[in-house]
């Protein structure tokens, strides 16, 4: 059997980076699905791209800037209206612990 493209430990690491609490069943399923997709994607290796520049924008442009002008802000209330939890004019979040 071929070496898996992605291991369960890698799935767990990536899920942690992406801040997704996956159940054990989800992790297993995710691993096999990602494995299949990555196996498909492996076909890119057939192409020699050593002397090919990457394209990050299909329509190349440069130097798009705005002048340093102040524009009106939105009212505090409008900016907080969607907050899941607030305390006066702040957004409130649960206790911060470092990972």
């Amino acid at each position: 059997m071929a070496e898996p493209k992605i291991t369960l430990a890698e799935v767990e690491h990536v899920a942690r980076l992406a801040r997704l609490d996956l159940s054990q069943a989800e992790k297993e399923r995710m691993r096999s699905q990602l494995d299949a997709i990555l196996t498909y994607i492996d076909k890119l290796r057939q192409l020699d791209t050593d002397n090919v520049e990457p394209t990050s924008h299909a329509i190349p442009m440069v130097n798009v800037m705005r002048e340093d002008e102040v524009r009106p802000c939105l009212p505090t209330e409008a900016m907080l209206a969607n907050a899941p939890e607030r305390a006066s004019d702040f957004f409130r979040v649960p206790r911060i612990i470092e990972e």
């Binding site: 524009r71 802000c73 939105l74 900016m79 907080l80 004019d89 702040f90 957004f91």
Partner: peptide, 15 residues
């Protein structure tokens, strides 16, 4: 275009 001024009321200088 929000201003950079220091010390505004919380969340009053956002968009």
């Amino acid at each position: 275009g929000c201003p950079t001024a220091f010390g505004g009321a919380p969340n009053s200088q956002t968009c």
